[in-house]
Amino acid sequence: MKVGLFIPCYVDQFYPKVGIATLQLLEKFGCQVSYPSKQTCCGQPMANSGYEHLTHDCNRLFINNFAEYDYIVSPSGSCVLHIKEHLHAPESETQNEGKATHIRKRIYELTEFLTDILKVENLEARFPFRVGLHQSCHGQRGLHLSQMSELVATPFSKPEQLLNMVKDVELVKLSRKDECCGFGGTFCVAEEAVSSRMGIDRIDDHVKNGTQVLTGGDMSCLMHLEGVIRRRKLPIKVMHIAEILTATE
C-alpha cells in the first residue's frame, strides 16, 4: 500500500528524529512510504487563531501533495484532526473537492494507523523505563485514540496498546490521566500564564508518579512540556511515541 508521510512543519524543523522513527516504523511493517518534498503545514496554526480563511493556499498545497496516496500518515493527532475536519478544496477549485474528501477519509494518526489498519501485534522493541503517556486532547477527544475520562464508556487506548507491546516498558499511572497540557497553539503565548501553569501541573503529576520518560503522540504538546521540564531542570526525558516503538535498548 502506498503511504504518504505527512511530517508537520514543527516536527520537520525541530524534531527530525521523530519523522525518521515514523518512517522506519511504517517501512518495518511493509508500507511503501514516500515523503512529498513540497509539503509544509496543515494550516491549523492560522485556523485555530481565527484565520481559517487564510488557509486556502495551504489546503491547495496539501491536496496536491497527498491526493495520490492510499493512506496519509502523520505522527501528530492534532494536525490529522485539523485535516479531517477542515481540509477542503479552495472555492475556485471545486473540481478538487473529491481529492480533499479522499484525503480527509484516508489520513491517519500514526498509532491508530498501526493498530487499526496495519493491525500490529508485535513490535520487537525494548525500552526498560518508566514511561508516562501524555494523552493529547486532539488525538484523544478528537480522533478517539483513547477513551476520554468524561464519557461513561468502555476504556481503551491505542497508544497504550502499542506501548504494552514494547518489552520492559512500565506505564506510569497518573492522578489526572487526560488533562490538557495547556499548549493550545497560539494559546501558549497569547495566554502565557495559564498555558505555563497547565504545563507545570502536568509535569508535576508525572514527577509525583515517577515518570522517567514522558511520551505522547503530539510533538507540539511535548515541545511545550519539554520546555517546562528543561527550564525547571527536571530529570525527565521527552520522546515521541514513535521513538519508543522503534527503541531496542
Binding site: I7, V11, D12, Q13, F14, Y15, P16, K17, V18, G19, I20, Y35, S37, E192, S196, G199, I200, M223, H224, E226, G227, V228, R230, R231
Partner: peptide
Amino acid sequence: QREMPEPPKESFG
C-alpha cells in the same frame, strides 16, 4: 517559563 527546543542540524526534509 519555558525553554525552546534545541534546533537540530538538519530538518527531516
